[in-house]
Amino acid sequence: MGELKLSDYSSDIAILSPFLLIVSALAVPWVEVSLSSLVDALYFLLPWVLVVPLHEGLHALTVKLLRAKVRFGVTTIGKVALVPYVAVGTPLPAKRYTLVSLSPLVLSAISFSLAWALRSDFWALIYIFNTAGMAGDFLTALVLLKMPGDAKVFDEGTVLRSKNEMPRPYPLWVSSLLKALIVLAFLLVLFLGRVEVVVER
């Protein structure tokens, strides 16, 4: 019997999430973040607050469309970050569970399109935050895509189990590569000067 615990990959997720944030930010290069006033800070925080229910709502909607039961919960990644999640109360084939895992891509696609069409910082931030929040979803999908499509997956909230083997999402050396990529991405952002955070008292 195989299992996938995202907590076993918490350091990879902690690296992949800011990497996705940086890459997403580079895709909407006009965005500037200023925290010079309370209004600016709220404008920055509002998309982040909205992303959480929209992201988890897309997971839940996909589960319901697949006629499965939905459960909600909150867990921790590492020792600090509280992470809400949607659990599937009905066993699903790996192929269908992959759809559940990747369903928030719809929000990324819509918000990215609106960001470019309206030249909107608000929708750009929705896109950036949602995509960065998909680190665990992408990791889960990589595991599921390596399994037989009809293999039943049992969701216990923070652990996925199957009677089939649940392979590693990638070889161990990829974890080291992720660390190198986040450093490279950070240096790239500094070099290109795409992100400017201004804090005034």
Rank of each mutant, 00 (worst) to 15 (best):
F154Y: 11
V83E: 14
L142T: 05
A132K: 00
T90W: 06
L99Q: 15
V70I: 06
T90S: 12
A60I: 05
D155Q: 05
R161M: 15
L160M: 03
T75P: 12
A87W: 03
G78P: 08
V80T: 14
T76R: 10
A124P: 04
A60P: 06
S162E: 01
V70A: 06
A115T: 15
N130G: 01
D155R: 01
L99V: 10
K69H: 11
V153H: 03
T90Y: 10
M134R: 03
D121Q: 06
G136V: 00
V106L: 08
D150M: 13
L54K: 07
L99A: 11
G136E: 09
D150V: 08
K64N: 14
A87Q: 10
A60S: 11
V83P: 06
K79N: 13
K152Q: 14
P93I: 06
I77N: 12
I126V: 10
T98G: 14
N164Y: 15
S113I: 13
A81R: 15
K69E: 15
L102T: 02
V83K: 07
K163Y: 13
V63Q: 01
A132S: 14
A151E: 06
S101M: 04
G157E: 06
M134E: 07
R119Y: 14
P93Y: 04
V86H: 00
S120Q: 08
L65W: 13
I110N: 00
K95Y: 10
A109Q: 10
Y97R: 03
L65E: 11
V83Q: 09
P84F: 01
T90M: 14
T131L: 12
T158E: 08
R161V: 04
N164I: 05
K152C: 06
V159G: 15
L105F: 02
D150W: 12
A117G: 12
V143L: 05
G73N: 12
F154V: 08
L61H: 09
G78E: 07
K95H: 11
G73C: 04
A141T: 00
F138K: 04
S108A: 11
K69N: 09
K163F: 15
V88W: 01
L58R: 02
F72M: 12
P148T: 14
T62W: 00
A60R: 00
L92E: 02
G89I: 10
L145S: 08
L114A: 11
D150C: 08
A68D: 02
F112K: 05
N164T: 11
V153K: 01
L99T: 13
S111E: 15
S120P: 08
G149V: 09
L66S: 08
E56H: 01
L105C: 06
Y127S: 15
R161W: 12
D137S: 02
L82F: 09
T98P: 13
G57F: 08
L107F: 13
A60K: 01
P84L: 04
W116E: 13
V143M: 07
G73I: 04
P148I: 07
T131V: 11
L144I: 05
K146T: 02
V83F: 05
F138M: 07
